[in-house]
């Protein structure tokens, strides 16, 4: 069992939640989201994100609009749909609970 694989699995598990979290603070276009995730070292390469964004959008959790860009082609700005907002809230409570549970188990003796 490789440690890298396990780490990647853990990161992937929370990636959706993180994207929704970033968008709950305001609209963002793909590169902004990537920037946040990269800073947090949740992703290494951008490629991972595009399929995920499209899937979330197709699931009705995200919406997007086109905005002109000064450098390059027009950009897709993503925002949370109402469904997405509800989804995000539910995930947040699950995450908080999970975090507590994990902390409790790993620190208790």
């Amino acid at each position: 069992m490789k440690i890298e694989n396990t780490k990647a699995q853990m990161r992937k598990g929370v990636l959706e939640y993180c994207i929704l979290g970033i968008l709950s603070n305001g609209d963002a276009y793909a590169s902004d989201i990537i920037e946040h995730l990269k800073k947090a070292e949740l992703i290494v390469v951008e490629g991972t994100l595009y399929p995920l964004l499209t899937r979330l959008k197709n699931a009705g959790l995200l919406e997007y609009r086109w905005e002109e860009s000064t450098s390059g082609p027009p950009r897709k700005y993503y925002s949370l749909s109402t469904e997405g907002k509800a989804f995000q809230k539910e995930l947040k409570s699950t995450w908080d609970a999970l975090q507590k549970a994990v902390e409790h188990i790993t620190t208790s003796k």
């Binding site: 499209t54 450098s71 082609p73 897709k76």
Partner: peptide, 29 residues
Amino acid sequence: AIKDRLSHEEGGAEIIADIESRIAEIFSM
């Protein structure tokens, strides 16, 4: 290689368009 990988996925064409658009942005920059 990317297209090969994505083409069989749902919404593959859209993902590819997003990726191409991102590449264009980086090139322009």
